[in-house]
């Protein structure tokens, strides 16, 4: 069985190469080997949990540089820090409204249930951009600003018209899936954790295949371990098609249409 595969979550970090373009080219070489057609790329060559406005701009410039080199293979997500609300809105406008990016990436600067996120999410919804929020539940302790799926559920309830990707589904996916289950505008991005058997099956059972997205977190993770979560799952072939590409295409179609990009 052949599948079209879109990877909703990749990075330039952890990939060989000195420039953003070199790194994305390398990432695409690996993607080709395992049959991945398109990548969503977020953040630049270096990472910062709590980026300054200057760091955000540099990070987004690098991601833009990379995706502009491969417009038929890669989409960009703009990295923002809600502690710097106006700077984040400016970046949203620069990279999404006026640029080629199609989503928003939020990481560990601030718990995502904080009201400081509201104007950013509202603007993203106006632009039809996906809001992708890192979420983890660590028994060893979260970082100070690191969100959980429960935080995401609060945010999603305040913004029913926005579309959210719960990155990693909280790592502890058995709790993460339950936390986002009541919120139909939250999608489970299964990337980033170990390829623990049962993850995807539970997500499909509890959320429906329409709410599950394939992503990898490459280059930090291998494509292989994350693809296995779908290839190895005991779910119908139709569900695999949705998870691998169908859902991401459906979510991106409105913003891509506005940008005149046909997929």
């Amino acid at each position: 069985m052949n599948y079209e595969i879109w990877d909703v979550h990749t990075h330039l970090a952890g990939v060989p190469g000195t420039t953003p373009e070199e790194r994305l080219a390398k990432l695409l070489q690996y993607a080709d080997r395992v049959g991945i057609a398109r990548l969503c790329v977020m953040m630049g060559l270096k990472w910062n949990y709590d980026p300054t406005p200057e760091f955000m701009r540099k990070s987004n410039d690098e991601a833009l540089q990379a995706v502009r080199k491969f417009p038929d293979r890669a989409f960009g997500f703009v990295y923002v820090n809600p502690k710097h609300t106006q700077a984040s809105l400016d970046e949203l406008n620069r990279c999404v409204r006026d640029g080629p990016m199609v989503g928003v990436k939020l990481w560990c600067a601030l718990h995502c249930n904080d009201p400081l996120l509201d104007p950013i999410v509202a603007r993203a919804a106006e632009l039809k951009a996906i809001v992708a929020q890192h979420c983890w539940i660590k028994i060893t302790g979260n970082l100070p600003g690191e969100s959980t799926p429960m935080d995401m559920a609060e945010l999603a309830a305040r913004h029913p018209k926005a579309t959210f990707s719960c990155i990693h589904t909280g790592g502890d996916w058995e709790r993460g899936i339950r936390a986002i289950r009541p919120h139909p505008n939250v999608y489970a991005d299964i990337n980033g954790g170990d390829p623990t058997a049962g993850f995807t099956g539970m997500a499909v059972r509890e959320l429906g295949a329409e709410r599950v997205l394939y992503g990898s977190d490459a280059g930090y993770r291998s494509f292989a371990s994350q693809l296995a979560k779908v290839h190895g799952a005991e779910i119908p072939d139709t569900a695999k098609r949705l998870i691998f590409a169908g859902n991401t295409k459906r979510l991106l179609r409105p913003i891509l249409n506005e940008k005149g990009i046909k997929v």
Binding site: A197, S222, A224
Partner: peptide, 10 residues
């Protein structure tokens, strides 16, 4: 415990 396909695809 892990999906078998992970190692194979590596």
């Amino acid at each position: 415990l892990f999906y078998f396909e992970s190692a194979l695809l590596k």
